[in-house]
Design a protein around this nucleic acid. Structure first.
Lengths: 210, 210
DNA sequence: AATATTTTGTCACCACGTGCCAAATGGCGT
DNA sequence: ACGCCATTTGGCACGTGGTGACAAAATATT
């Protein structure tokens, strides 16, 4: 027998995680095949042999299960930031690092799931809204955690703007990555993230030429 | 008789605009008094003496009518940008200017309506999601309009990032303005907008001190 | 093995949102 | 003033997302 690392993690918790993952997976395939609106949550629940009521105990809404990969990412980002040392680096760069580490922690099939998720985001209004809302939530959470480390409250406009910029980099990265993937160029997300990060000065200085 | 400026604007169009405004107004007061979820769209429709079916011909969703002031703003911004001359100024600043001009165009009761709208955004998940979605839509629209003036397509990451930054400034402004208004400091939005705009360098350079 | 706690299923219910068609209303020429 | 056409509105029915309440099942604890 091998040593139990991290946590015991009883049967109960394991089962819960599995059903959640199963629901997200079933939803992803059905949404991809039949479309988001054409698929009912009952159909998703049935596919996992779970009642509709139980579905809504795992996900707040139909849209939430569609962006499950993003929710997973934000959770990982929150965890990574809890132990990160902010010393010396820019806030924007700190967010980039937390994202990179979080991406590194994600399971192997995550990029594919994320890709499908982004297609739904691109084509469906309500899914797009939920995606933005989830990112915004992560953003607030992050600002609240960062504030004490900087000696300000999380209403400080400079901090807010910094966090906004960090997430702006992520959003741009996600889009660039997706469009790149569609035409074969399959670069890893952290690489794209670094590139976009480096483009910040050019972006704020971008001027129309008369 | 006086000379007709701008457009004839027949009775039909005028009536449509009025019902739309009435719906938004009725919704605002009811949402403010009874709460967003406690208010049914039927109740809003009844208050304007219009059928529920008609309500949904004016607004895509219950959330949409809640953020009507923002929708109005984005429309005005789009209009302003159509005639703005981009020469010489930064893209981020160009967005700021378009916003300032648009804010100037809004009717006198707009700030109050916007304020109530922001309260709903702050307390309600789905309204917040819709608000973010609407801003994102305006963002894309703006990027698409700006791209040809810069000689690039609207997938250029630098342009994207620039537009993201411009909107980040707006979002930060909105929050700052609201929190300022709550405690008496009632400065006009364009002023706050300028301040936040000026804080960009500080934000991207913001560093944690060990 | 018995008990306590947490999760799940069933049922009922409400309200959002939409397709469909008939009725009403404004625009317009004669 | 009248009737004709285009557009807008109302009424109805329907599917589905989402929730409260309570009983049943599953898991943890002693």
């Amino acid at each position: 027998m091998q040593h139990e690392t991290e946590a015991p993690l009883g049967l109960r918790e394991r089962k819960k995680r599995r059903t959640r993952a199963d629901l997200a997976s079933a939803a992803a395939t059905k949404f991809d095949r039949d479309g988001f609106e054409a698929t009912t949550v009952e159909a998703v629940a049935d596919a996992v042999e779970v009642s509709k009521r139980t579905f809504f105990r795992y996900f707040d809404s139909k849209e939430a299960v569609a962006v499950a990969p993003e929710l997973d990412l934000w959770e990982a980002v929150g965890d990574r930031l809890a132990e990160a040392e902010p010393a010396g680096t820019t806030v924007v760069d700190l967010i980039r690092r937390a994202l990179t580490e979080a991406l590194d922690l994600m399971p192997a099939d995550w990029p594919e799931r994320f890709f499908l998720c982004r297609r739904l985001v691109a084509f469906n209004r309500s899914v797009r809204a939920e995606s933005l809302r989830a990112a915004d939530e992560a953003q607030r959470d992050l600002a609240a955690r960062l504030a004490p480390r900087l000696g300000t409250d999380d209403n400080d406009p400079v901090l807010r703007l910094a966090v906004e910029t960090g997430f702006a980099v992520w959003r741009t990265t996600a889009r660039l990555w997706v469009s790149g993937r569609k035409r074969g160029t399959d670069r890893p997300l952290p690489t794209v993230l670094e590139e976009v990060h480096a483009a910040i000065p050019a972006a704020v200085a971008l001027t129309a030429r008369p």
